[in-house]
Design a protein around this nucleic acid. Structure first.
Lengths: 244, 244
DNA sequence: CTACTTAAGTTGCATTGAGCAACTTAAGCA
DNA sequence: TGCTTAAGTTGCTCAATGCAACTTAAGTAG
C-alpha cells in the first residue's frame, strides 16, 4: 500500500535536496558502549567507497508514512529488532556533506539490549558490525559527516543519562539494580554511589519487581521490569550535582 | 555565488520529498511569551489559505550553505534580526503534513530580545505578527502541523529554562537580575525564590557586571552582560528539585 | 556442619544547596 | 526628615547527596 496521496497544486519547483534518514544504534557489550555501522559498497563511483557509515538511506515516499517509521524500517532491516527505544536526535543538511549534491538527513538514535539481536542473515548482513564508541571517537573516519553525528549522539546519550532512566533500555528484562548501575557507570564513564543510586531508582517509581534473579555464587539480586517501555522517566536532579 | 557543486554519480532517482525550514521565534512582551507568525496567502489553491503559520519555506540549494544558514536567512527576512540565539529543535516529515506531497521540515527556534526588532517594511511585513503563546496553545489553529511544532518548541524552551541560562537571550543588554528573574518566572509560569535565584546565577559565572542601571524610583540595580553569547550555560541542578 | 568469600542491600553521619522569611540598603519623593 | 519601593543580604530549616561502614544471603571448601 502506498502512503502517498493526490497532490493539490504542486509547490514551486525548486531543485529538491536529497532526503535521507540515519540511525545511531547503541548497545552495551563487554561493559563498553557500542554502535552499529554498515560498510559502504566498494564501487569507485559511490560516495565514500569502503568506508563505514551509520545505517540509513533515502526516504521512500511510497513505503514510509513519516520519518520515525522510516527510521524504524531501516533499524529493522539491519538488526531485525522491532520496537526498541527510538528518539529523534536532529537533522544535518548542507550542500557539501554528500558529493552527489545538497542533502539533508534526519537522524534517530536507538537503544537495544545487548545480545537481543542476531545480525540478520538478510540483505547485506556481512557489511554490518558493532564498533566500540570510544575507539571511533578517538579516530573518526566515517563516511559523510557521520563522525560528527555519532559524536552528537553520544553527547545526547551521556547528557540524558545524567537525569533520566534511559540506560534501562540497554538491558533485557528482567535486570537487577547492580546491572543497571553498571550500565550507568559505563555510559557516564565514572562510578556512582551504590546507596544513592538505589534510592533514586526506587524513588522514581518506574521499576516493577519481577522475582529474584540467580547469581553465580553469592546473594541473589531482585529482578525488575520497566513499568513503561514507551520512554524514560526524568529525575528531579542530575547525578553528582556538585560536579563529580 | 552558488553553494551547489558538481555532482559525482547521481543517487538513484527516488521521488524526493519537499525540504523546508521553519523557525519558531520567541520573545517576551508585556510579561508574556510571544511567538512570531506569518499569514499564508489567501489563494484557494495554496495550502491552508489565510491561516497563520510559522515563518519558513523551501530550502534554496543555491542560497543556503546548510540548514542553519537557511534558518538564519528566513529569520532575517521576517525580523531583520541578524544573529540571535538559534538552536535546532528537530524535524517533522510525513506523507500527509503538506497537501502538496511528502514533505519534511527542519525546525529551529530563536530567542530575540523584546523591542529589539521592528517588523521589517520588507516583502510581506503586513502578514507578520506576534501572538501570545498561551493563547495559541489553548486553541491551536495553525497551518500544517505547526500547532504540534509550536507545542514542542514551548516544551523544549520550558524544560531548558529549568537548568540553563537560556532566558538571558530574551533580554537586551545590559539587564538586571530582577529582570532576568522575571523572565524565568514568565517562561516557567511560577515564581522562584529571589535569594536562591541570585546565588545560582552568580555562581554560574556567565554574567559580567556592566554598571548600575537607573530605576524609576528606588534602589538602582546592577546591570549585567553575557560573558558568552554563543550559547547558554548549564546549571548543575534544576530549579525546584523537590518538585515545585 | 562450620567458616570463608562474594556481592546484594542497608544504615548512619557530615555536607550542601533549596525554600522560606525576615532584614538591611539605596534610591526617589512628599 | 521620614515614607515608600524595590534591590540585595542574612539566617534558619529541611532534604538529598557523598561517603563509608555495616548486615544479609547465597555458594563453596575444608
Amino acid at each position: 500500500m502506498s502512503v502517498t496521496q493526490r497532490h493539490s497544486k504542486p509547490a514551486p519547483d525548486f531543485p529538491r535536496p536529497y532526503t535521507t534518514v540515519d540511525v545511531v544504534i547503541f548497545t552495551i557489550a563487554q561493559d563498553r558502549l557500542n554502535v552499529l555501522l554498515v560498510q559502504r559498497p566498494g564501487h569507485e563511483d559511490d560516495p565514500f567507497p569502503g568506508l563505514w557509515a551509520l545505517p540509513g538511506g533515502f526516504v521512500n515516499v511510497d513505503l514510509d508514512a513519516d520519518l520515525q517509521a522510516c527510521a524504524a524500517r531501516k533499524l529493522k532491516e539491519k538488526t531485525g529488532v522491532d520496537s526498541p527505544y527510538l528518539e529523534q536526535l536532529g537533522s544535518w543538511g548542507s550542500a557539501l556533506r554528500d558529493p552527489r549534491g545538497w542533502s539533508a538527513t534526519h537522524v534517530y538514535f536507538a537503544l537495544i539490549p545487548a545480545h537481543e539481536l542476531q545480525l540478520t542473515k538478510g540483505a547485506n548482513a556481512a557489511d554490518v558490525a558493532w564498533f566500540e564508541v570510544d575507539t571511533l571517537l578517538a579516530r573518526p573516519t566515517l563516511a559523510f559527516d557521520h563522525g560528527c553525528i555519532l559524536q552528537a549522539a553520544v553527547e545526547r546519550l551521556r547528557s540524558k543519562v545524567e537525569y533520566t532512566s534511559l540506560p534501562a533500555f540497554l538491558l533485557s528484562e528482567p535486570f537487577t539494580l547492580p546491572q543497571l548501575q553498571q550500565v550507568y557507570e559505563t555510559v557516564l564513564g565514572r562510578n556512582v554511589d551504590k546507596s544513592g543510586f538505589r534510592t533514586r531508582m526506587l524513588a522514581a517509581n518506574f521499576l516493577i519487581e519481577a522475582g529474584h534473579v540467580e547469581g553465580t555464587s553469592n546473594r541473589p539480586a531482585m529482578g525488575y521490569r520497566l513499568a513503561d517501555r514507551s520512554g524514560p522517566v526524568v529525575f528531579p536532579r542530575t547525578f553528582s550535582p556538585r560536579g563529580h
